[in-house]
Design a protein around this nucleic acid. Structure first.
Lengths: 217, 217
DNA sequence: CGAAAAACAGACCCATTAGTCAGTTTTTCG
DNA sequence: CGAAAAACTGACTAATGGGTCTGTTTTTCG
């Protein structure tokens, strides 16, 4: 996968500023509406109406609705996941604390987002799974990066002596991803704040069970 | 909520057998296609083509596409969730074992289903959230029943002395539901069997942390 | 059997969809 | 300035969507 900043520089060099500005405006609004209504339930016209732009403008910049969405994934979705779920756990402090804080922050953002439609990534996975291989390839790639980051973090924790060296790093990663995806679905309705609190408590409980028990020495 | 069997008896009494048979055929095929392609991405024509039936037949039996879907939820979806996730944990044996076996069986079914599109319930929640209050009401009702069943099971476990009496039953329930919903999303692609195995291992790890530690007595 | 009711067929309606295209406005740059 | 390139307009198309309606077939039951 091409690095994020390199990709951005390329765009700035090859494409004019106006082009970039319009494309970005379209993509931001597009992601908003796709998140809100789903991809198949959002028409190109919906997006254009929101921006007071015409069909011609859209198809001047993008080949198709699918091309448009793939570019949204690469330009916006990847960055969002990176800043919220990847970077926060790449530090070198106590690993499990990093993950706890990362999840805490991400869920808190969701709580305060009055219009919440769940986890962007898993919503799109549900929608495209078995229907669009091309898009799924990109979404799975993001999942893979998240998984790799988590596995590295756990292994770092084992190496640093914070995490029991017998734990299966990949197992923990899968379990963490599962629970995060699920709680984001559960938080779309009904007292998201209470559910977040309960979730975080149990996550801490689980973490206690894979930590090195200081008391036993 | 009206009991399941009562509802069935009512239908059998009021509606002719032929009517019931056709309606059921439509609903079964409808659920299949809605699960596969999503509700908004499946047309009434798609379903009718599959069954070699006409528009007239459809609108003779159902008021609208939405009415059709709500009936599918009540007749098929509720039953599926009941038999796979509710009934299996209503027994009186060791609670955590019941839950482990229940999840194990449900996930194993998913592994062997070559065409898997994730967890029916969470897929539909993602699709209808913020778009259709009426349908969401029914889906949330199912979630609530699942949650209540889990909470009861945990409390039974605490009462029976298998589960630490300090644990928060509602917290455990939310955490279990989250992780199940999430793993079903992760299992739609990429080595579902391996992910299931890892997930179950970590679930057992988590359960160890909320069990009564026999060794400490 | 035969008439009424139930079950179904399919042409039709109107709104919406992704995508095209010929033409117009805006920007760039020599 | 002025011409070429870039950015954009909006009417149009062909396909598809949910839903209606008139009429035909099948079933039921006295």
């Amino acid at each position: 996968m091409v690095g994020l900043s390199t990709n951005l520089e390329e765009n700035l060099m090859e494409k004019s500023l106006k082009r970039m500005a319009t494309m970005n405006r379209m993509q931001v609004t597009g992601l908003e509406l796709f998140y809100k209504n789903g991809y198949y339930n959002t028409s190109v016209d919906d997006i254009l109406k929101e921006l007071s732009l015409s069909k011609g403008a859209f198809y001047y910049h993008f080949d198709s609705k699918e091309d448009f969405f793939v570019q949204i994934i690469q330009n916006l979705l990847v960055r969002k996941i990176y800043s919220s779920l990847i970077e926060p756990i790449e530090g070198h402090e106590h690993t499990l604390d990093l993950i706890i804080n990362c999840f805490e922050d991400a869920l808190e953002t969701a709580v305060h987002n009055e219009m919440d439609y769940g986890f962007l990534l898993s919503n799109f996975i549900n929608e495209f799974n078995g229907r669009n291989e091309e898009v799924m390839k990109h979404l799975n790639e993001i999942l893979r990066i998240w998984e790799v980051t988590l596995v590295s973090a756990i292994q770092r924790g084992k190496f640093n002596g914070h995490i029991d060296r017998h734990v299966d790093a990949e197992g923990v990663a899968v379990y963490l991803m599962s629970s995060y995806i699920g709680i984001r679905t559960l938080m779309v309705e009904n007292t998201p704040s209470a559910r977040k609190y309960r979730f975080m408590s149990q996550l801490r409980q689980y973490f206690k069970s894979i930590e090195i028990k200081q008391s036993s020495f």
